[in-house]
Amino acid sequence: MQSKGILIENMRKRYGSGDTAVDALKDVNMQVNPGEVVGLIGPSGSGKSTLLKCLGAVIEPSAGTMTLGGEIIYQDGWIIKDLRALRRDKIGFVFQAPYLIPFLDVTDNVALLPMLAGYSNIESRKRAVELLEALDVAHRASAMPSQLSGGEQQRVSIARALVNRPPVILADEPTAPLDSERALAVIRILNQMAGQFDTAIIVVTHDEKIIPTFKRIYHIRDGRTDEEAGEGRPFE
């Protein structure tokens, strides 16, 4: 079966070789459907970041199959050669810190992605403003990142992750620096956006405040994943 969201089968990742080799991922299997937000949790050193980097196409897995948005991108080797374009068009990233580009205003931080994908400046800014409106930060569109509050910055970074309408969003500890209320607001937004744009979203987190909100959780221990049902507690 081909998933439109994320499908990972038997993924392995070994760092290094010989005596010093580390098997960070031993057998990872995941499936995230479009419109769904799943949690990825696990103790330190279990392989969360490694998995995110493989999914984000910045490091190469050692074996397995990876399907994003209905397209097989990895099968015991990269199927898609232009990883830069893959990241630009298929994957949105949300980080622990917003990592906005400090010398671009809010609109252009978001519009940069469509621009990189070849859209005109006008079209790109139009798309950016649409998302800023959806995320309720359109009133700060011409501000510089340093003039925004932490929560506003994080919403701008979510807008950036969404603007090219990628089938997949990878969020790495997106609520770590936020208080409980703001953390839940971010989760609400991610759920809303997943529904609105039919995006499959993986949220890597340690954050006890938000873990109960997931309907499904993947638990990773020593490089192997287990699926668990989450509490699916409402976050409103």
């Binding site: 830069r84 990241r87 630009r88 990233f93 580009i101 400090p102 940069l112």
Partner: peptide, 16 residues
């Protein structure tokens, strides 16, 4: 460096 890493991650060309 951080911004450059982000720019690369979101698909900016090396030449850019």
């Amino acid at each position: 460096i951080r911004e450059i890493a982000v720019l690369k991650l979101i698909g900016t060309r090396n030449s850019t």
